[in-house]
């Protein structure tokens, strides 16, 4: 099996700050790989290293077999990239921005024209192709950036929060497109904060936290693994703060106060609900809400990143 991305021991310091901490992972060819993590986790830094924009302090990365440091030209030639914070040239027209990219990737004039026309039409920018990008909205700029990433017909796409700040329709359009491209065989490395997006699109997800990979798995497996981490949420009608009593209930592994409610973590939510109703009756309390919560991907994410539990969640 050839890897589309093979990362070994990648490390990046900014001065003394360890932004990426000896990470290793592989992405299969044709895979849609999600890269998730809280702000400052090291996602953008990782993508910058993988796309040859900055150099790592240690470790290696190969893109389709090309070493990004030793063979940057070939590696970069097969990538399409949308950086996190990037703009097209606002003094150039949409068309000229695309031509510039095409030329930098060594695409022939004929092919450039053909692809530019195709993508501008697809992204609904064709009517405004000769206007300077200065006049474009954020969504239009983002669509243009995507066209610029696609004009070289990349085999692998690196997208850093491509739907960030876009309206629902534009985001959906881009999401669908990512899915379609992946369907055509393009490998996608997708950094996102949108867990629903990751859940829908990605074959596998890596969660990075404090520069370290906390876990890599499919969205389904992640959620399944956390089945043990379901919870029951209860809110009382009268002031109540005896967490210690709740902790003693059968089946409860942990209790957390969340605002005016309590969350009781358990592997057996129905048992806990039963215990709770007894508890409420025995103590002459009243509750306002009682919910069982399955682990959404969001909770899995929060759990992994907030509590720094890594691979050992399975044990």
């Amino acid at each position: 099996m050839a890897w589309a991305i093979e990362v070994k021991n990648l490390t990046k310091y900014y001065g003394k700050l360890l932004a990426v901490d000896h990470i290793s992972f592989q992405v299969k060819e044709g895979e849609l790989f999600g890269f998730l993590g809280p702000n400052g986790a090291g996602k953008t830094t990782t993508q910058r290293i993988l796309t040859g924009v900055i150099e790592a302090n240690d470790g290696d990365a190969e893109i389709m077999g090309y070493n990004i440091q030793k063979d940057a030209f070939n590696a970069k030639s097969i990538m399409g990239i949308v950086p996190e914070l990037a703009n097209p040239y606002i003094d150039l027209s949409a068309w000229d921005n695309l031509m510039l990219m095409g030329q930098l990737y060594g695409i022939s004039r004929e092919k450039r024209n053909e692809k530019a026309t195709l993508f501008l039409k697809m992204f609904e920018l064709y009517e405004r192709r000769n206007q300077k990008v200065k006049t474009f909205s954020k969504g239009m700029k983002q669509r243009l950036l995507l066209s610029m990433a696609l004009i070289s017909e990349p085999r692998i796409l690196f997208l850093d929060e491509p739907t960030n700040g876009l309206d629902v329709q534009s985001a959906r359009f881009i999401r669908n497109l990512i899915g379609e491209l992946n369907g055509e065989g393009v490998t996608v490395f997708l950094t996102t904060h949108n867990l629903e997006e990751a859940n829908q699109l990605c074959h596998r997800i890596a969660i990075i936290d404090h520069g370290k990979i906390a876990t890599i798995d499919s969205p389904q497996n992640l959620r399944r693994a956390f089945q043990k981490m379901q919870s029951v949420e209860i809110g009382f009608a009268t002031p109540f703060d005896r967490i210690d009593l709740l902790e003693k209930l059968i089946g409860v592994s942990k209790v957390k106060k969340m605002g005016d409610k309590f969350r009781l973590y358990t592997e057996a939510p129905s048992r806990v609900v039963y215990e709770l109703t007894n508890f409420v009756r025995d103590n002459s309390l009243k509750f306002t809400t009682l919910n069982t919560l399955g682990p959404s991907l969001e909770e899995v994410f929060v759990k992994i990143t907030e509590e720094h539990i890594g691979w050992d969640y399975e044990k």
Partner: peptide, 14 residues
């Protein structure tokens, strides 16, 4: 300032 540099650096040019 215009945030065009990163895109340029990720192209196959040194």
């Amino acid at each position: 300032r215009m945030k065009t540099l990163e895109r340029l650096l990720s192209c196959p040019v040194s």
